[in-house]
Amino acid sequence: MADPNKVDPIHQFQITDLVSFGNGGVSFTNSALFMALTVGVIGLYLLLSTQKRSIVPNRTQLVSEMLYEFVAKMVSDSAGKAGMKFFPFVFSLFMFVLVANMFGMIPFFFTVTSHIVITFALALLVFVVVIVYGFIKNGPKFLKLFVPAGVPAYVLPIVVPIEVVSFLSRPISLSVRLFANILAGHITLKVFAGFIVTLGSLGFLGWLGAILPLVMTVAITALEFLVAALQAYVFAVLTSMYINDAIHPSH
């Protein structure tokens, strides 16, 4: 990266081993480090800020309470009272994605959610929870999810595969959306920031021209913060909507 004409926007996503355990390929990577950091920061913040449990909250406690109420409202709006059983699950997912995204906005930090392995694992977790709980709660009636009400029997051979594919596409769209947003945003940011250095190597006129990508970089940074929060929100909303399907399988 010392050469100003060589901009390498992908470099930031490289996974490196920090500590290796034996030769089996098991190692503690930078991705794992930032996942652990994410969980640690969430846990510490929520525990410490709510420790005093004051009736009139101070600022940090207020932030925790707002996060709680925000997610609680979201879950009860989309999945109803019965869905509040899954509040801890949705809240954990929301906080993990949110804080991981926000960590990604700090320079030199690794962005955990920019790897599809992570987002797909999260989406698969949601998917499995929905299926397992759906079958436990409703038994075979859960399959009614694939049979829309009021459809004549002779159309069912066409409608049911469509519904099944639509259902199976959920974890894909859920994970790809989060991963693609974060990945694309970070690459764009890096490319525009790289233009500044490249133009700057041209001398005075270059520095003058570099003002444009600098402005763009600042603007994109703000946009990325918005995207980071929004994608966490979207992930959590869709999770609670899918859980709603598990509780009330008929459309």
């Binding site: 594919v165 639509s166 199976l168 596409s169 959920r170 894909i172 769209s173 790809v176 959306r177 693609a180 979207v234």
Partner: peptide, 12 residues
């Protein structure tokens, strides 16, 4: 969101 829903279903 709409785009990813559409493409994901096709891919699946």
């Amino acid at each position: 969101r709409l785009g990813s829903e559409f493409i994901a279903a096709i891919l699946v």
